[in-house]
Simulated scan of single mutants.
Amino acid sequence: MSKATPAYLAIAAELRAAILAGDLAAGAKLPSETQLMAQHGVSRTVAKWAISVLKGEGLVDGRAGSGVYVRDARRLVRHAHGRDMRAGAGPTSPFARDTARAGQQGTWEHDSRREEADARIAGRLAVDPGAPVMRTAYRFLADGEPIQLSTSYEPLHLTGGTAVEWPEDGAAVGVVARMDAIGVHVDEFVERVSLRAALDTEVAALALPARASVLTIERTYYAAGLPVETADIVLPGGRYDLVYRIPVD
């Protein structure tokens, strides 16, 4: 840390490194505010801020009357380079593949409904505002713990009346495999990754601490340049590694 680094961030960085290295294992109790004050020669406010940083990252939890403890910090690796896997090559759900690689059981909840595209989604799907779309909201769980949210949109002029109109009701699972089933060959996807504070609804749905941060991914699948699905994905900041493999022609 440079001399200009605020003391609370330096303390948080030291504790974070110990957690990620396994020196402070899942379930271990963090030094108390009083102990941090003594160890680093700082005020209680600085010690409190340092712990708040780790809480916001989802690395630790406070237990009333007991202290602050390291959460199970197992990270799920999202392998974007293999996310266009087709039927016959293993699970076609990207989330199912990611959790299987991690030795975890992946499950999800979903709610699909027909809606009209607002201006934002219409622009991403290259349709007119008000065009009919299938909207599906997902909550994904790894070993029963909520770990990802996603809301996807598909243009019903493409999927309406087909066997894959309702994303979770057909034989095929995953955007690429489902589009293959109706003769639409997905050949590209684009992702835009950002970091922001979690919304209250996301804090509740993902069981996050207050003031947590989340990664957001705006993803769109294309077939010969035509957008066929777009989604807003929300990941807890401290629970995911994003891995991208980009071919160089």
Results as ranks from 00 to 15, higher is better:
residue 186 V to G: 07
residue 192 R to V: 14
residue 12 A to F: 02
residue 249 D to E: 14
residue 232 D to N: 14
residue 159 T to E: 05
residue 155 P to A: 08
residue 97 R to E: 05
residue 238 G to H: 00
residue 189 F to H: 11
residue 41 G to Y: 10
residue 6 P to V: 03
residue 139 R to T: 14
residue 212 A to T: 05
residue 50 A to M: 04
residue 49 W to I: 08
residue 129 P to A: 01
residue 244 Y to A: 15
residue 57 E to N: 03
residue 104 Q to R: 10
residue 108 W to D: 05
residue 46 V to I: 12
residue 37 M to H: 08
residue 221 Y to V: 06
residue 101 R to M: 08
residue 121 I to G: 04
residue 2 S to K: 09
residue 38 A to K: 06
residue 173 V to L: 14
residue 64 A to E: 10
residue 245 R to F: 01
residue 157 H to R: 15
residue 113 R to L: 12
residue 206 L to C: 07
residue 84 D to K: 13
residue 239 R to S: 12
residue 170 G to Q: 04
residue 240 Y to C: 00
residue 199 L to S: 13
residue 21 A to R: 10
residue 161 G to I: 04
residue 177 A to S: 07
residue 176 V to R: 04
residue 13 A to Q: 06
residue 54 L to H: 06
residue 136 T to S: 09
residue 246 I to R: 05
residue 117 A to L: 09
residue 28 A to G: 05
residue 148 Q to W: 10
residue 219 R to N: 10
residue 61 D to P: 09
residue 52 S to L: 15
residue 11 I to Y: 00
residue 115 E to H: 15
residue 199 L to M: 06
residue 105 Q to A: 09
residue 98 D to W: 15
residue 163 A to H: 13
residue 8 Y to D: 03
residue 151 T to C: 13
residue 13 A to G: 11
residue 217 I to G: 02
residue 205 A to M: 05
residue 112 S to H: 15
residue 1 M to Q: 05
residue 104 Q to L: 14
residue 13 A to N: 04
residue 45 T to R: 15
residue 218 E to S: 11
residue 55 K to F: 08
residue 44 R to C: 05
residue 35 Q to D: 02
residue 170 G to D: 02
residue 235 L to P: 10
residue 232 D to V: 11
residue 102 A to N: 00
residue 144 G to P: 00
